[in-house]
Design a protein around this nucleic acid. Structure first.
Lengths: 339, 339
DNA sequence: TTATTGAATAAAAGCGCTTTTGGTGTGGTT
DNA sequence: AACCACACCAAAAGCGCTTTTATTCAATAA
């Protein structure tokens, strides 16, 4: 059932039916009611492709999957995407996930030029990310989950990574720790840069050093978390506390600590950043992990809204948000041994 | 830059340019070369909406996100989606992720009627899943990741869940275990039903019982894995081995075992099903976990191909695959204490 | 009365592509 | 010379909608 048939069935013109369905004013209440009733009865819904061609809008927000070769498949992505999709649906939009077969640049270019999407979401930005100027050049609205150092004014939603890790480090220092290890994500990622800065600043503020031996950086898997932590614990000046950039790293870190015959909390304190993903919960650990918390699901929701604003014409400069991060104190952080 | 402009620029008609770009035969090699060169030079790519309207195909495969209220956000989804997206891109298709705001049924209905997608992927099917007949009624091709008990002949890709868990149980029984606990997923899910059947059949084959107290079923998070395992270990006849339906449950199960002062492998054997997700690797555990393994990423890839076949007109009955599952022996499975 | 508005609807144009149909000029066949 | 393929290309229709422009008819104003 399409517009034409529906109109013919009602003895009305296509335009009248279209206007009635789309809530325009110049249709009598009477006809409108008839049209709506018929649409319901025939279970009519307008064809997506035709609608898009006519309006020039695709009704979709695009997101490009980190390339197939990259082993760093973000497990947080599911929760993020779930939020994104939910909020997008509320704005009558869909999420288009695209893979980068060749280069990431080519994917973005294709997406933009073909008009497959009205806006693009950038995830896991690097500190200096070439994608932002690229998309700007292509003239397609884009909102970054995170932040780049780009002087380019771009729409973004980020969490206060620096503040979160400064607070976490301050907490540990306040408990008496003097050697705090950092198990961070990939050093090129913007969030990792910020977190390191927070860690460093808190230590310096307290008159402590931030030695390279306690500054670990790698992908955020349990394996890498284990390796980095085990390395630090085996070093000449092992840490008495560890801060992990993800709950996955923390799982590995905890195993490294236990494997060394040490207890989490009493021997080595642990703080992890928790994005609130459902499959691994820090409060279910033994002992429950102290965390810096910010829901990546809610971030996804908000980003879809920002994208909708952008499509509606809002200026990117007016679409910049930094969310505070909660520090949730649990049992994995205690004063160091002998304090 | 659109077709019209490009054609005008070349002094050719739109149809000729279109045919040249789409590889039809009745265009001289000469003109084709000219057209392609111009397209490259002006960085032309055809408008997606127009293409879709003209061909009647959306060029997208749809997948509906498990509803927003459902806490069971599948963390495996990322890896699956990644495979799906990659393979889809190879077939020039995109993946459209849609949320179910109201009911799941309404979402599918909308997707199908609006022609937003050419095929739909169904994830996490229940043993009896109403979505299969629904989509069939809507006349939109659908491929199920997993299998339903539906008499409806539907396209699917499943792994041999029953065989995998039978083999795993047989391995444990062969080592001398007589009480094997099952930490399964949600009992309504098709895969959980099959895995339980495999476990049960292996035990019965060996003349052993499959008591309800050792048959745990819940969502596949570390927390639930911990709870189920702790419960079994605290019971009157605790298991000497545990089989987990996911690596996340296994993380929880391992913690429960350790918390009870027992060692994994020597005291309690553990086998986990591993979907090959990148963030948590069983071989990185201590001890490395024995697993039943099947890559969910590759399943995603294959499913996109099946969807493409279906769109191409292949019959659903000819699109049914069951993949064998590897049993990978590592150090978490040993003979029981005293054997 | 006659022009003037305004409401309600119809008609038609257009979005950018694909595809069908039609037309031209070449060369080979009878 | 007439015919027919054949290769190549142009013109035009059509996909299903939205939106602009026209039209009708009744009610009001001059």
């Amino acid at each position: 059932m399409n517009l034409k048939e529906l109109a013919h069935h009602l003895g009305l013109s296509q335009s009248t039916v279209s206007r009635a369905l789309n809530g325009y004013q110049d249709v009598s209440p009477d006809t409108r009611e008839r049209v709506l009733a018929a649409a319901r009865r025939f279970d009519y819904s307008p064809n997506a492709s035709a609608h898009r061609l006519a309006t020039g809008q695709s009704g979709a927000i695009g997101i490009v999957f980190p390339s197939g070769n990259d082993p760093l498949l973000d497990p947080l992505f599911t929760d993020f995407l779930s939020g994104l999709t939910n909020a997008a649906a509320r704005h009558q939009m869909d999420i288009l996930v695209s893979a980068s077969l060749d280069t990431a640049e080519a994917s973005y270019r294709r997406l933009a030029q073909r008009g497959s999407v009205d806006a693009i979401v950038l995830s896991s930005p690097l500190a200096e990310d070439p994608r932002v100027p690229l998309l700007d050049g292509l003239g397609i609205p884009c909102v970054v989950h995170g932040r780049t150092r780009s002087p380019h004014p771009h729409a973004f939603l980020d969490i206060d990574n620096e503040g979160a890790f400064r607070q976490a480090t301050e907490l540990l220092v306040g408990l008496g720790h003097r050697r705090v290890g950092l198990v961070n994500g990939d050093a090129r990622q913007a969030f990792a840069v910020d977190r390191e800065a927070g860690w460093r600043s808190a230590l310096q503020q307290a008159g402590l050093t931030a030695p390279d031996t306690l500054n670990g950086s790698d992908i955020m898997t349990d394996e890498a978390g284990y390796r980095l932590t085990a390395g630090m614990l085996a070093g000449a000046t092992p840490p008495t506390a560890i801060i992990c950039s993800s709950i996955f790293s923390a799982v590995g870190a905890c195993r490294a600590i236990r494997d060394r015959g040490l207890a989490i909390g009493s021997d080595i304190s642990v703080i992890a950043h928790d994005d609130g993903i459902t499959s691994i919960r820090p409060e279910a650990h033994h002992p429950p992990l102290t965390t810096t918390f910010s829901s990546i699901h809610r971030a996804g929701e908000r980003i879809a809204e920002i994208a909708a604003d952008l499509i509606g014409g809002k200026s990117p400069a007016d679409c910049q948000e930094v969310w505070p991060v909660d520090l949730i104190f649990r049992d994995s952080t205690r004063p160091p041994v002998g304090a």
